[in-house]
Design a binder for these strands. Sequence first.
DNA 1: CCATCAATGTTAACGTCGTCAACATAAGGG
DNA 2: CCCTTATGTTGACGACGTTAACATTGATGG
Lengths: 223, 223
Amino acid sequence: MPANRNAARKPRRPYHHGNLRRALLDEALATIRADGVDALTLRSIGERLGVSRTALYRHFADKAALLTAVATEGFRALHERLVAAWEEGGRGDAAFSAMGVAYVHFAVANPSHYRVMFGGFVEREPRDPELTVEAEGAFKALVGALAALQRAGVMRSGDDTLLMARHVWALVHGIAMLAVDGQLREPGAVETLMRYAFERLRSGIATDARSQPAPGDNSLSPA
Amino acid sequence: MPANRNAARKPRRPYHHGNLRRALLDEALATIRADGVDALTLRSIGERLGVSRTALYRHFADKAALLTAVATEGFRALHERLVAAWEEGGRGDAAFSAMGVAYVHFAVANPSHYRVMFGGFVEREPRDPELTVEAEGAFKALVGALAALQRAGVMRSGDDTLLMARHVWALVHGIAMLAVDGQLREPGAVETLMRYAFERLRSGIATDARSQPAPGDNSLSPA
DNA sequence: CCATCAATGTTAACGTCGTCAACATAAGGG
DNA sequence: CCCTTATGTTGACGACGTTAACATTGATGG
């Protein structure tokens, strides 16, 4: 690739700008991290990169496309953290909890970024294919871990893995969202809730739990 | 109240406008419902009410204040639905599930409104007092129901009620968020997940569940 | 080696938005 | 009846996203 050789060797404006798309993404993410999504302005980001305010349009269709790319990056990073937690945790019981902790930690450490990923900034109807791939990839990490735990006999093996995964995802996502929204402000609240939720989750989902309807229970279906 | 007498008797512009604040709120909510938050424009809403574009500033500090009021309305409505589900469901086991269903149903039926309530549109630092009151009121409905179920012996009575409530809230909020975000698109997916989640939640939270650490479990604390 | 072309970046401008200041009008109390 | 206050309007400003027209650079092929 002769085009990249120059770019790789001399970082000082080899091509028109080098790799502007990458720079735009990084700068956008930095701005979002520092000052929130509302502070993200095409003009300011261009100015900060020493480039015209419309240069962005050669690399992204519009501002929404930039945000979609930021969200995609987020899912990629999240996926990475989840896999790392699973692998480094020993792919067992503890690793599963570690995944949950890693998930919430990612959200709490990058609240604005997390909001871009889930806050309705991306279009819903024709979902961006790359974003879909990355988001599903992250989700698949959870499904895979759950399937492994099912095979190991530590999680209910009869249940639909995807349904179980959605359950866990919803729980963790809910905690993350509440935390990001500032609903769990007291110090240690997030950790306490995480610990409790995973304890309850486990005794509800693990093989050793009594899954038969409780005596006298006949009314749990949605009204 | 002589001022209101005219307003009540003749709907055609009794005062300057009648009750503009109320009309602004309703129109804003209608717009959000119909076309989403992004479509909400101070100019358009004023035009739609046959009023100047800046008339709003006599009733709200700025656009954010309007959105905060919309969010407050949302929590009030949600609170109402939750209480209704609890009361009409018989304040028991089934009623608790009905509350969960009502919660998710509210979010799915009013996705944009729900997003205003939780999407980070309201300021975090000096939280609006009225909003806080309404949001906490809705949450208290959940806490109250859980406490009643604890007293009735159907829910783990040893656990901190607030912690339990946060757990349930996070779960339901997570499902609602995923649904609103379009992550549960297949028909019936939300209902299926809700049913499963509440079954698992119950067998994890109910008195009859084995709450002791599972045999061989020694590693559930966050890594 | 150079002409051509596509890729990339710039400039100027437009329409819309939230917001403010100055002004207008109506309601109600002294 | 006048004066104060609440309410609504007009005009304007700066910032924003976006587009069209233009400029420049890198690569490609004869």
